[in-house]
Design a protein around this nucleic acid. Structure first.
Length: 262
DNA sequence: CCTAATGTTTGTGC
DNA sequence: AGCACAAACATTAG
């Protein structure tokens, strides 16, 4: 689930429910999602403090801890993570791994597979270091920047757009959706595209990201590819052709052989 | 029992 | 260096 759009939704959950509220306590049901620190340290850091306005970089959620000198909680959701707000008294879910309690309810990190989790960072430099080699956020990148970063790559579009060090935030569903809406074949090599074609790709990417971020997910609308990708006999909502399903760049890929080329 | 899953990392080989 | 591919991580659903 968690790609740029989902993480943007989780960022809003934190911003709307938790920012500025004093943290009463932290319950760690499964310390496996704490990466590089103990439950004790997390409690000591957060109790009595609060979160400041959170930001997002690619698929990372960055929550500054106010009142602590330059401390940040970083969250990466892997393939199955989520951040949910629960009013007080709501029964916990089987996969709620961490709960941060505050007035009126609690923020829960829910994650079935635990491929990623929570990270702690100090100042801005430390945050940058922990995020690793991340390209510019896909939502902020300009057309010229996109061309500059991808134009000379010989990799397939599917692979290049999914590469977080090139562009941060796009995941499997978003990449397929963008390529379908822009009518590019996922196997096309990036270097084969003219600057003009990149401008077109950029425009489509912006539209897809704006609508997805607003929805807090890649919307499975009937007019979108994402609304049909799970149906093995799904048809292209634009032309009615049976959609192709395959593995490109080691990922399940869905595309229209008519609109995007075989 | 087997397969696949919206992510990342690491290793191998060309 | 850049790229493709496979495996591993952990867990559940079908």
């Amino acid at each position: 689930m968690p790609e740029l759009s989902d993480v943007e939704g989780f960022r809003r959950v934190l911003a709307e429910h938790a920012v500025g509220k004093p943290i009463d306590d932290v319950d760690v049901a499964d310390a496996q999602v704490l990466r590089g620190f103990s439950a004790k340290r997390l409690r000591e850091l957060l109790r009595g403090r609060s979160f400041a306005e959170p930001s997002r970089r690619g698929k990372w959620l960055i929550a500054p801890v106010s009142g602590a000198d330059e401390a940040h909680l970083l969250v990466h959701f892997g393939m199955t993570g989520a951040l949910v707000w629960a009013e007080r008294g709501q029964q916990r879910h089987q996969h709620d791994r961490v709960a941060v309690r505050m007035d009126g309810g609690e923020l829960r990190y829910r994650d079935m597979r635990k491929l990623k989790g929570l990270y702690l960072a100090g100042d801005a430099d430390d945050v940058a270091e922990q995020l690793g080699e991340l390209g510019p956020d896909a939502f902020d990148v300009s057309a010229a920047q996109l061309y500059g970063r991808l134009g000379e790559r010989s990799a397939q579009l599917k692979s290049a757009l999914s590469d977080q060090s090139v562009l941060a935030g796009l995941g499997n569903l978003l990449v397929d959706e963008i390529l379908w809406q822009a009518r590019f074949n996922p196997r096309t090599r990036a270097t084969e595209l003219t600057e003009q074609r990149f401008t077109s790709l950029h425009k489509t990417m912006r539209t897809v990201l704006r609508q997805s971020a607003k929805a807090g997910r890649v919307p499975p609308w009937p007019s979108w590819l994402t609304g049909h990708r799970d149906d093995p006999s799904g048809e292209c909502p634009r032309c009615g052709t049976r959609l192709s399903h395959g593995r490109i760049s080691s990922r399940t890929t869905v595309w229209c052989p008519h609109c995007q080329g075989a």
